[in-house]
Amino acid sequence: MRALAVAALLAACATPPSHVQTMLYLGRAIPTGGVVDERAVETFVADTVARHLPAGFTLIAATGGWRDTATGRTITEPTLVLIVLHPAGERGPVEAVAAAWAERFGQQAVLRVELPVSDLRF
């Protein structure tokens, strides 16, 4: 009986989450100089983020640090953290936003962190 309970518990733990939380860290320093200004952010949110993520998102202003792969130096810059809850396996819209940010503002990379959501309620 105990073995059956342990097996059921392990099976429940192995069930993949129905949703995930993805956080994109969008650096605002432009490699050629300057910073992505508020107007450019507003335009990007309106024409790219809202279009790809119509179900909703959260945008938080932050300061980030990262190691520049070209120089080896640690760079500190203004950053936006875009948080999105979406069905597991549906990464296309989030990836499209990350790629658009990198291309539009000349970024080396966009950090993406994805976490399983164990309880999602509205």
Rank of each mutant, 00 (worst) to 15 (best):
V84C: 09
R67P: 04
T76Y: 00
T74D: 02
V36N: 08
E38F: 03
G106L: 10
F44Q: 00
P116G: 09
I83E: 14
L9Y: 12
A88M: 04
A61H: 13
V49R: 05
T69P: 07
D37I: 07
T15G: 11
L120A: 15
F105T: 07
P116W: 09
P31N: 04
T63C: 01
R91Y: 13
E77H: 00
G106I: 08
G34K: 07
L59T: 08
F105P: 04
A70L: 06
V81Q: 13
A12C: 13
L59C: 10
T43S: 09
S118H: 10
L4S: 09
S118T: 14
W101Y: 00
G89M: 06
A100V: 02
M23Q: 15
V84A: 08
P87S: 10
E95Q: 11
E42F: 06
V49Y: 00
T58V: 06
T43K: 11
P78M: 08
V35E: 15
G65C: 09
R51F: 08
T71L: 07
A11G: 15
R73E: 11
G27C: 03
A11S: 09
V84N: 08
A61M: 03
R73G: 02
L10H: 02
D37R: 07
L115W: 08
L26W: 01
V110K: 12
I60M: 10
A7S: 03
L53T: 06
T63I: 08
L10D: 06
M1Q: 11
P16I: 12
V35Q: 12
S118M: 05
A50P: 01
E38K: 08
W66N: 00
R2Q: 12
